[in-house]
Amino acid sequence: MNIRLTGLIAGGLLVLAALAASVALGKSMVPLGTVVDAFISFDGSREHLIVRSVRVPRALMAMMVGASLGVAGSVMQAISRNALAGPEMLAGSNGAALLLVVSMFLFGYTSSMIHVWAALLGAGLASLTVYVLGSLGGGMTAIKLILAGATINLLLASLVQGILIFSEQSLDEMRYWLAGSLTGGSMGMFLRVLPYMLAGLVIAIMASKQINLISLGEDVAQGLGLKVGLYKAGALLAVMCLVGGAVAIAGPIGFLGLAVPHIARFLVGLDYRWIIPYAALLGAALLLLADIGARFILPGEEISAGVVTAVLGAPFLIYLAQRKGG
């Protein structure tokens, strides 16, 4: 108990350190003292401007997106009782991406509330579709889930590509976003999405006890007097807010939501009351680090954070699959 709590505090400190590093490091290095000055005594200098308008928003976005994806992945894995579930396997990321691209195609590129709702709706609908398809015919197995997910992902991705082919402007505007990047995210969009993401986090943490019970098996949870349907609906709502919000800001960031719950489970065991908060901190820290890495891996060129997480995460998926398909 105490060890877990200490770990949680250590995780919090890790996130803070990563936040500070994310603000300070980059093409132009900013000493931490200057960062503090930029908020206390803003003097309009170039460094202060960088800190206030670029670095701090970017770090905050990475933190929130990472936490959201980590928690969403944990909730998905608990509810589906499937180690391969996650925002990308359940097609939530691509669902949000598709509806967002459609809404930008129809209503223009300025950030607006319509885009946020489109992303939330897309994430929810796609996840639900894959979940239902994967559990058809009694019980969700890894292979059913992954095939249903791959099929729906293929459909969504090709529809997105189809739309982008028709409009070169969309393609040019959206390709960075579709790679999962934190560079293009606007503060306006972030502030619009933030309440939903926070709501999703709060729901997930508040319901973590019930989610834990469901992860033991629906029959067990039902036998213990839990309203399983209600809590599953609540969990889906939380996932929708978390994934939709994350994708609206940063595009589909791959594999974070798949890998983070595994790391959290490795650290604290099978108890989702602890896995969920750990996943929030780990997700935030990992995405912050991936985003810092993206600035330095190729000299002179920034790659997107989504590529970094995918390069690290895809082999992890292969490893899981190798163990799973016994």
């Binding site: 391969l84 990308e88 890894a142 292979i143 992954i146 095939l147 791959a150 390709r175 960075y176 579709l178 790679a179 999962g180 990047s181 791959g254 594999f255 790659i303 997107s304 989504g306 590529v307 995918a310 390069v311 995460g313 895809a314 082999p315 998926l317 292969i318 699959a321 190798q322 799973k324 398909g325």
Partner: peptide, 20 residues
């Protein structure tokens, strides 16, 4: 099949890198 999904995902990340 399971491993192939992972390989497809790696290939996608790689393509994304070039496309961006």
């Amino acid at each position: 099949l399971l491993v192939g999904v992972g390989i497809a995902a790696s290939a996608n990340a790689y393509i994304t890198f070039w496309v961006t």
